[in-house]
Design a protein around this nucleic acid. Structure first.
Lengths: 205, 205
DNA sequence: AAATAGTTTAACCAATCAGTTAAAAAAAGC
DNA sequence: GCTTTTTTTAACTGATTGGTTAAACTATTT
């Protein structure tokens, strides 16, 4: 197990990065440690030396992965002043984060599908931060009287769940014919922002 | 492989039902055929007699699972007249379907996380039906001039992705303290309907 | 009732999988 | 440079996994 007080070695970082990809791509059970060893060129016993077990490796990967996105979103939102800008920034930065690193949305959906039972506490808390961030935006809007009341959880699932499904379904959308146009990330982001803003403003501004 | 022209036997149905649960709960790789045998009390070789392989069994389960929800939603929507009623019914019936059978949203999210590469063509087409259903509602609304333009895909991911995340995250939400109130299914459904309607109506009706 | 078809069974199998061991090698400390 | 600590290695291990076989049993047809 990687100790908290020691800077991870180059090998450990290499393992963790590759493992994060494999866990996202194949899920926990579908990720084979021999394959991870082959991907990294690191001997399997070394993997066990750096991380005590497959489970420990998984926990480390998920915690690190989710704290990254929560950091990005919260920081970006806090740099905005108005409620509408904050709301827009929440959507925009979350979309950018998962588009840049689809492992985030993929792993999140896998975890949710598993009932979050394998999700380390630290990773759960990172997701809570997103929800709390929305709560603050909504409370601020309510206090200023510029926003129709809505539950933070509602916004959370529509934004996080919606954008995650959008990003995760990209391969499927590309593989099948459709009578509806596909959307790029900026287009989808803009659409979601619009629906949410209009939905909460009630004036179609 | 179960032939299309023969009514499935009692045993085959029993296997399929249990397998659907296991595939949802543990994913494809995490589902063990010996465990399925134990769950059903059916000898493992029987499972292979009825379904040629684990993959074939999976395909059958998913196709059946997704066609069910698409049927429900499309039928319910087509029983409504106005665009707003149809839109509301889309949300309501989808929410009810996945709440009644969480295997739907769980398996959908797993499939999306895997890039849909294991999703049988027939199951993909069922998902397309949902998107197409939304497309028709939107086109009708646009023709009647009662709806702000929005892409079907946007609504699709926000509703399907949002409600799926809501249902799938129930275990997680129950396991952690939160400063934001949790919502029941009716409450969440109502909230999502409201945001969507306001978002597309632009008049906060 | 006998023949045929369908289904189930116990036992088995090769390959895979997470993890281990102790020696060798490399890095760090003195 | 020598000693100690850390890291890597090749080989190995027991358990598990998807799948198979042929005989036994059950159901259906003639």
């Amino acid at each position: 197990m990687l100790t908290e007080f020691k800077k991870p070695s180059k090998t450990a970082c290499l393992i963790q990065k590759a493992a994060t990809n494999l866990f996202a791509t194949h899920g926990y059970d579908g990720t084979i440690m021999d394959e991870l060893a082959a991907d990294t060129g690191v001997n399997k016993a070394s993997i066990y030396y750096h991380f005590g077990s497959k489970q420990d490796l998984y926990d480390t990967c998920m915690t690190h992965l989710f704290s990254g996105v929560a950091d990005q979103v919260v920081v970006a939102v806090n740099q905005q002043d108005s409620v509408w800008e904050q709301l827009e920034e929440f959507v925009t930065s979350f979309a950018a984060a998962i588009y840049t690193n689809p492992n985030i949305s993929i792993s999140l959906m896998r975890e949710m599908a598993s009932g979050g039972e394998n999700m380390p506490v630290a990773a759960r808390q990172q997701m809570q931060r997103l929800l709390f961030c929305l709560k603050e935006i909504i409370e601020k809007g309510a206090k200023e009287g510029v926003l129709i009341p809505v539950q933070p959880l509602t916004l959370h699932v529509m934004i996080v769940g919606g954008l995650s499904l959008y990003v995760n379904s990209a391969p499927l959308r590309q593989s099948i014919e459709s009578s509806t146009p596909d959307l790029s990330v900026p287009e989808m982001t803009k659409e979601v922002v619009q629906v949410i803003k209009n939905g909460l403003r009630g004036t179609g501004q």
